[in-house]
Design a protein around this nucleic acid. Structure first.
Length: 488
RNA sequence: GGCGGCGUGGCCAAGUGGUAAGGCAGGGGUUUGCAAAACCCUUAAUCAGCGGUUCGAAUCCGCUCGCCGCCUCCA
């Protein structure tokens, strides 16, 4: 049974989507005015892991993530660089997709842009005014928080408790300090759209409601985001959506914890952030994803010097195990994904002589699933992965193992499948087909066989120097009694 | 001021009623021409503090201390 911690009810709940095995899933996406940092990456990766696990559990998942391409910070940046707004948003949208891909995060089923939703957002605003939830003042349209009785149900805040005195400036147009803007009136030099209230642009909160409703329906199963979005962003989404439709907006609210640096939240405004593009210069995507699995997704995760090196070593265990297993594959073995299907869905196809082996393997698979079933406990799931690698490493190295190639292949298939949910699948899996890789393989084959000859002749000094020099070029080679392997 | 969260071995981190997973680091070993990898053994926490509930608590309740987040754009 899959249990999810729901921020709305503040408790663990059994996951039951609205429509049996179909899940509608929305995650708040980036505002495209800069590269994204490793803190943003935590959000993207967390919800990618969750999405992949739901798919693994047999759900059909429709996943939508917005691109905010009209917003104050974008306008400011465009002004600073003296370029049109579109230059900024196109550039950083492209970078967002690029680095998302590099991190192995699945694309959403659709990434709507805020600017393409404007007609629908205007529809919503009209509806909200008609129903008495919003009012127009001097070209702005504001949502009246007082009109929505459930306001505060997600964040647990009471309107009267909020410190309005501390708010930088309460706009004069507002009837109440907590009212938030649905439509912003035009100021000279800003992009604008025509509306019944004059030229202007939509308020930030509205786009998520609009996209969620348009692409996933009036009530959706899961809405994710960083914990800082809980208030006011998600609170406002609930208010405007439920006021508009009269129906519940989201069944399960999920919020990921922050990345902490030097004891503080990593954020753009504090200036203590690391861009993912820079981190990727020194660490692999799998290392970064392993790091994200080192803590429960709802808890804070400390990013500090050396922590990624630690993560790298952790992932190396899994990576080395892939390599070890692949060395024992028989050429006639089916591809891993077919073997994995047999393992998970067509168990009657499995060779009966491997029964004990599968029994062990399934015990660890169950351990992994139990961990993930309890609110996606990544650290515990990784523990189960280590149990699998240890089992395979030990068992398959015993003397006279029966059916070694088959066991290696099935073991590989399962490990790659389960680890892959967390973005820790075999990094080599997709490589090896391009021409460059083929050439590289040939060169290494020549080099290593020559070196093998040197070792046979006990010319160790030269053989070792080849190894050292390759290491400096980022290629690690390992000598075994019967063979030598290499990896990048 | 209001609301919420956190405090587990040297470090990271699971565990939320029956006497502490796992990873990294450290020590020893098997293996190896050496190195790496792998495996085995091992060092190390009474779970922030105090009090309470219970046959029994890291795990429930209360208080104290410390840290953090939200209340303003922010994953």
């Amino acid at each position: 049974m899959l249990q999810i911690y729901n921020s709305l009810t503040r408790q663990l709940e059994e996951f039951q989507p609205l429509y049996k095995d179909y899940v509608t899933f929305y995650n708040c996406g980036p505002t495209v005015y800069d590269f994204f940092h490793i803190g943003n990456a935590r959000n993207f990766i967390t919800f990618d892991n969750i999405r992949r696990y739901l798919i693994y559990r047999g759900y059909k998942v429709k996943f939508i993530q917005n691109i905010t391409d009209i917003e104050d910070k974008i306008i400011r940046k465009a002004r600073e660089e003296k370029v049109p707004v579109e230059n900024i948003t196109e550039k950083y949208t492209r970078y967002f997709f690029d680095y998302r891909n590099k991190l192995g995060i699945l694309p959403a089923d659709y990434h709507p842009r805020a600017t393409e939703m404007i007609p629908f957002m205007i529809e919503m605003i009209k509806g909200l005014i008609e129903k008495g939830f919003a009012y127009e003042k001097g070209g702005d349209v504001l949502f009246s928080v007082a009109a929505f009785k459930d306001y505060g149900k997600l964040s647990g805040k009471k309107i009267e408790d909020l410190r309005e005195g501390d708010r930088k400036k309460v706009k004069k147009e507002k009837e109440a300090a907590q009212d938030f803007v649905l439509w912003k009136s035009y100021k000279p030099g800003e992009p604008y759209w025509e509306s019944p209230w004059g030229k202007g642009r939509p308020g930030w909160h509205l786009e998520c409601s609009a996209m969620s409703m348009k692409y996933l329906g009036e009530t959706i199963d899961i809405h994710g985001g960083g914990t800082d979005l809980q208030f006011p962003h998600h609170e406002n989404e609930i208010a405007q959506s439920e006021a508009y439709t009269g129906k519940p907006f989201v069944k399960y609210w999920l919020h990921n914890g922050f990345l902490i640096i030097d004891g503080e939240k990593m954020s753009k405004s504090l200036g203590n952030f690391f861009m993912i593009k820079d981190v990727l210069d020194n660490y692999s995507p799998q290392t970064i994803r392993f790091f994200m699995c080192m803590s429960h997704y709802r808890k804070p995760l400390e990013y500090r010097k050396g922590i990624l090196t630690n993560a790298q070593k952790g992932f190396n265990h899994i990576k080395d195990c892939y390599q070890f297993l692949k060395e024992h594959f028989s050429q006639t073995e089916s591809p891993p994904f077919i073997l994995c299907d047999e393992l998970l869905h067509y168990q009657y196809l499995l060779p009966s002589e491997l029964e004990n082996f599968f029994k062990q393997l399934f015990a660890y698979k169950d351990e992994y699933e139990s961990a993930m079933d309890e609110d996606f406990n990544f650290p515990q799931a990784v523990g189960a992965l280590f149990n699998i690698t240890k089992f395979l490493n030990t068992h398959l190295r015993e003397d006279n193992v029966s059916h070694l190639p088959q066991k290696a292949a099935y073991g590989y298939a399962l490990l790659d499948k389960l680890a892959g949910i967390l973005g820790l699948g075999d990094p080599d899996y997709e490589k090896g087909t391009s021409k460059d890789d083929k050439t590289m393989d040939d060169i290494m084959e020549i080099l290593l066989s020559t070196r093998q000859q040197l070792r046979k002749n006990k010319e160790f000094a030269l053989a070792d120097s080849i190894r050292d020099r390759l290491e400096k070029s980022g290629i690690t080679i390992k000598d075994f009694p019967d063979k030598t392997t290499w990896s990048r």
